[in-house]
Design a protein around this nucleic acid. Structure first.
Length: 927
RNA sequence: ACGACUGUAGCUCAGUUGGUUAGAGCGCCACCUUGACAUGGUGGAGGUCGGUGGUUCGAAUCCACUCAGUCGUACCA
């Protein structure tokens, strides 16, 4: 084995082996349990980002853990077709050749999309393989596959037949660039600077004018009323009169509606029902006409005066203002901050637009979905997220599911020449059901469904629904959904509604909601900010120039390139080192606590790379000391276990217990931490060191050496299995070498992946061994501290004296001479009956016992005095605190007895230590 | 405006039902090329747990208020 762990030399090898041998497929349950996770389908257009890597590490860890527990485990992979995003990608490619999708026509265009999907759609799945992910690739699904499309049609038809899907003309969020409706969730409003234009609307009877304020003067052409508050004295007499709409000449009524704020602007609001959501509602209340004045491009249509027809909405705005000004109808212009809605894909300003769309009536679906979370059938982890869920579910709007694009599931509705609509699974079914003669022409609806409509069916459509498959039986409901909070509305809520409706089951029993990965400065990672990290670059490393190149090419806003380059060069002066997959995964696990934001710090990654190296070298040490030696496999041969052996075995049980608990609670950070601590601070720092005196001893018996070798190997073998769900590669590589020495037949048991996950054996928890070893550590650390603070070379063997020993101390000293001598580098250990015989010494206390290092020729009086003084000060403070507590009548009478006793014990210990140190101080002082 | 979350060492974060001397990693300081590992070892410094008040014998932990930050929802045209 190499001196350093080299991830690149083992990762691909093992991944291929695992996949080729079919280890990712569900294997028959050994526990009777089934465990399944459905991957939140990444977008086919996407490439892997840190969020995926983080989320998938969690899912893979859970999957590997349950697989090792013996559950029949399925991690279902796949991707969604991302209607708008994918269509945009392919359109952009066509545009580069000077073509539009209309040049190709619908069918040829869709063929092109499929073609693109075949060639580039698999990028993310290859990247997932690099991360060591173990989903059952043989079951990979895509939302546009036949099976899933079939499920989509089935759901659509059934919902339609139950009046839960309807078609209607409504005001929707219209994206004038993409020419499609989008749902409210796909619109993000941001504060932008604009103006508030105050316009005069003359009263039709010539008796004056009203002033209305607007942020969107161009919608004036569609105005159908001016509204005032019913209690507003200023306008009482005008209610019911009309104003004449400037530039248009139409008379529109002045109406009263308490939606109007008296105190804002002039207290008069222009009402444009076809271009504003609030006005739309008011328009319905007052039976106002809905006049659409724009085209699908958000240019003015022919409902406006000829002069403005064909103008873009913003151009028309300027023209209207200019013309109003010319007519002296513009009272004033104020700067005004307003929320501007923009489409999350196109970034275009969204236009409320009156169109025919398909909707899901959600009210009836929502109720059981709310109940499922209320009654605990679905549990959110951490549980506060259910509030977010309820808040959304209690304020649901009907879901607009039609999209005016080509790529997606075409709506299974057909129209006859009279425009009557028929919904069915196929055209033939429609004909049959409605007895339509073949002479009746039927044209299918042009629209496709929102991608989330198919994603909402993901947990059951991927398992073969509407067929009754064995997979559905076994793996549905899935065990847990692992997802980010940003997607609770988009996906989680809709999945719960649809799945309950169609399977009568919840889609998942738990929802584990994790945080969002941010950069080291807490900024959200985004391509436009130029602060994204590619997980693969953390695995393989990347030099600075390539990183700069990567971050500054293909940008939406090239003007930011210089800034990004500068920041990148500052933050990554030497590029990024290759940390390997295991280190990256361990980092993600350690960051998975309960918070909402996860700041990704490269230093953490480096630390866990070092951890992998530590594990690697511990393995080297174990192999060097056990290969070709007796590792105690023959149970009939005698072995002797040292204190260190029983201690580390005991500790292993406790850690194992903790890991199970942490995985149950999705506390991957705590699990990672416990594993790190055990591996480094117990197994490596202490146990491996304690094994040396035995293995290198000339006097130790074969039974003792076998006992230690056996423990070395078995604890390591267990540790590798404990670590495997988080760090699959290094553990597999090490396990192959270690397992045979622990008695595992790697001819039949070919991989760590399918080994049983370690269970706690409580019989092996040995508190007395832990106490004794703690004593050994205390003695060693006390001596090391004196060495260090007295500047005594670590290499210099020291004589020590032990005094004030109780029975335990005496027994423990007798048992552990070898450990102490070796680890503390002692020349000799002598016991003295009383202090009196002791020469001038530096002292360390272990309980009552004194560990003395004679000072002759070694120790500086002043240094020792100041060292003692420091400890005395500390103890004084501690004692004052304890006295305060114990002298408090309330504490002694009201606190539980055990707590009081504990404090009394502490006081006793502190007092005795203090006395010892003070005596010592006095003694040294007199030297 | 409402709601949620966060505030603990220079940095990133743990801290279970109130009872620890408040922990870890990184960084920092000193020493050490000892035979698994310098991607290492040993020792050390560093925190009035955002603030105020309360409940309690006892608060980082519970309650109220407050400050700062993040996010979500709703917004006045």
């Amino acid at each position: 084995m190499d001196k350093h762990f080299d991830p690149q030399s083992i990762e691909n090898k093992w991944y291929q082996t695992w996949e080729n041998r079919g280890y990712f497929k569900p294997a028959p349950s050994q526990t009777g349990n089934h465990y399944s996770i459905m991957i939140p389908p990444p977008n086919v257009t996407g490439s892997l980002h840190m969020g995926h890597a983080f989320q998938d590490t969690i899912m893979d860890t859970l999957t590997r853990y349950h697989r090792m527990l013996g559950d029949e485990t399925l991690w279902q992979p796949g991707s969604d077709h991302a209607g708008i995003a994918t269509q945009m990608v392919v359109e952009r490619q066509l545009a580069a050749k000077g073509l539009s999708k209309h040049d190709l026509g619908r069918e040829a265009f869709i063929d092109k999309v499929w073609e693109w999907k075949q060639t580039s759609g698999g990028q993310i799945t290859q990247q997932l393989r690099r991360l060591g992910m173990s989903p059952d690739w043989s079951r990979e699904r895509f939302t546009m596959d036949d099976g899933l499309s079939n499920a989509v049609r089935e759901v659509f038809v059934q919902l339609y037949e139950q009046d839960l899907i309807y078609r209607g003309k409504r005001l929707v969020n219209w994206d004038p660039v993409l020419h499609t409706a989008v749902s409210d969730l796909e619109v993000a409003s941001e504060e932008e600077m604009g103006s508030l234009w105050h316009m005069r609307y003359p009263l039709s009877d010539g008796s004056g004018h009203l002033v209305v304020a607007t942020t969107r003067p161009e919608t004036l052409f569609g105005d159908q009323a001016v509204a005032v508050h019913p209690d507003d004295e200023r306008y009482q007499s005008l209610i019911g009169k009309t104003v004449t709409l400037p530039l248009v000449g139409r008379e529109i009524p002045i109406i009263a509606d308490d939606y109007v704020e008296k105190d804002f602007g002039s207290g008069c609001v222009k009402i444009t029902p076809a271009h504003d959501f609030n006005d739309y509602e008011m328009g319905k209340r007052h039976n106002l006409p809905m006049l659409n004045v724009m085209t699908i491009d958000a240019a003015m249509n022919d409902e406006v005066p000829e002069k403005y027809q064909g103008m873009d909405r913003f151009e028309a705005r300027q023209a209207a203002i200019k013309d109003l000004e010319a007519l002296d109808l513009l009272e004033k212009i104020e700067p005004h901050k307003l929320m501007v809605p923009r489409g999350d894909r196109s970034h275009a300003v969204i236009e409320p637009f009156l169109t025919d769309q398909w909707y899901v009536a959600v009210e009836e679906l929502a109720k059981p979905a709310i109940d499922a979370v209320k009654n605990g059938d679905i549990e959110f982890v951490p549980k506060n997220w259910k509030n977010t869920y309820f808040e959304w579910m209690n304020n649901l709007q009907d879901w607009c599911i039609s999209r005016q694009i080509w790529w997606g599931h075409r709506i299974p509705a057909w129209y006859d020449d009279e425009g009557r609509v028929y919904v069915g699974r196929t055209k033939a079914e429609v004909r049959a059901n409605h007895q339509l003669a073949s002479s009746v022409t039927l044209n299918q609806d042009e629209d496709v469904l929102d991608t989330w409509f198919s994603s909402a069916l993901w947990t059951f459509s991927t398992l073969g629904w509407p067929e009754k498959t064995p997979e559905l039986e076994k793996f549905h409901p899935s065990s847990v959904l692992v997802t980010g909070f940003d997607i609770i509305f988009f996906w989680v809520a809709r999945m719960i509604m649809m799945t309950l409706k169609f399977t009568g089951e919840v889609p998942f029993k738990q929802v584990y909601v994790h945080g969002l990965v941010r950069d080291a400065e807490g900024q959200k990672m985004s391509k436009s900010k130029g602060n994204v990290l590619d997980p693969i670059d953390l695995i393989d490393g990347i030099d600075l120039e390539s990183l700069v190149q990567k971050r500054t090419t293909g940008m939406m806003q090239p003007e930011k390139a210089a800034k990004i380059e500068k920041a990148t060069r500052r933050q990554f002066t030497d590029g990024i080192e290759a940390y390997g997959t295991d280190a990256l995964r361990f980092t993600f696990a350690s960051l998975a606590s309960t918070g909402r934001d996860i700041q990704f710090d490269l230093n953490r990654c480096e630390g866990y790379r070092n951890f992998c190296n530590k594990l690697w070298n511990a393995t080297r040490y174990v192999l060097m000391n056990t290969e070709g030696e007796d590792t105690g496999l023959d149970e009939t041969q005698p072995i002797t276990l040292s204190l260190a052996d029983t201690w580390i075995t005991s500790r292993l049980q406790t850690v194992t217990q903790q890991i199970h608990k942490h995985f149950e609670h999705y506390r991957f950070d705590l699990a990672a931490n416990a594993l790190y601590e055990f591996t480094w601070n117990e197994y490596c720092d202490w146990y491996l060191e304690l094994s040396k005196p035995i293995l290198q001893s000339e006097t130790a018996t074969d039974a003792e050496k076998s006992g230690t070798r056996r423990t070395l190997v078995r604890v390591l073998e267990s540790l590798l299995r404990l670590l495997h769900p988080i760090t699959p590669f290094i553990t597999e590589e090490a396990w192959q070498a270690v397992a045979p020495l622990a008695g595992v037949d790697t001819q039949s048991q070919r991989t760590i992946m399918t080994q049983p996950y370690p269970l706690t054996n409580e019989a092996l928890i040995d508190e007395s061994a832990e106490a004794e070893l703690e004593w050994v550590k205390q003695v060693i650390m006390g001596i090391r501290r004196i060495r260090s603070e007295m500047n005594i070379a670590p290499s210099k063997p020291l004589p020590v004296l032990m005094a004030q020993m109780n029975q335990n101390d005496q027994a423990w000293l007798k048992n552990n001479q070898v450990f102490l001598k070796k680890l503390a580098r002692l020349e000799s250990i002598d016991v003295i009956a009383t202090d009196a015989e002791a020469p001038d010494s530096a002292v360390a206390l272990v309980g009552e016992m004194k560990v003395l290092i004679p000072m002759a020729g070694l120790i500086d009086k002043e240094a020792e005095l100041s060292r003692l003084d420091k400890d005395i000060q500390k103890l004084n403070k501690e004692l004052a605190r304890l006295n305060g507590k114990l002298n408090n009548e309330g504490f002694v009478s009201k606190a539980p007895e055990a707590v009081v006793k504990k404090e009394q014990q502490k006081r006793h210990d502190a007092e005795s230590a203090l006395k010892n140190l003070k005596d010592q101080y006095a003694k040294i002082e007199q030297m």
